[in-house]
Amino acid sequence: MKPFEPEIVAFCCHYCAYTAADMAGSMRIGYPPNVKIIKAPCSGKIDAIHIMKALEKGADGVYVAGCLEGDCHFKNGNNNAARRVKYLQKLLDEIGVGGERIAMITMSAGMGGRFAETAAEFTEKIRKLGPNPAKTAAGEKLEKAIA
């Protein structure tokens, strides 16, 4: 059996987190290839359903990366995103997937180092948690059906 490699989806806002990821590249700071970035105009644009669908379709962890507190380009999109993540954490706890599989992270556009650091930290956290239980059970059933 292959060792577990988490699939992470990172929704990054254009003005800070996405630029920070770009900065990490320019600074030649590596971060785990497990993290798949989806660029959004603002972290406040990330709806609860985007996070849920990412998990439903097989992500082991999802995080939303927005601007630092008080620095949102659209005033308070990052605060809205943080509230949505908190709401979804409760829902994910209720259905047994676990709220700790999602997170809200903030950074400025210049924080290439922080982007790489948080990507690595989150990947390790999810690695410890193991695969998304919804995906695992569904996958096992499929494997049995094929066998």
């Binding site: 609860a48 849920m52 439903e56 829902l91 919804a134 059970a137």
Partner: peptide, 19 residues
């Protein structure tokens, strides 16, 4: 419609966990 989408996704994941 939004809440319907969220509940459908949550139920789908809950069922998937039980195979």
């Amino acid at each position: 419609r939004k809440e319907v989408g969220l509940l459908a996704s949550a139920l789908q994941m809950s069922f998937m966990q039980r195979g």
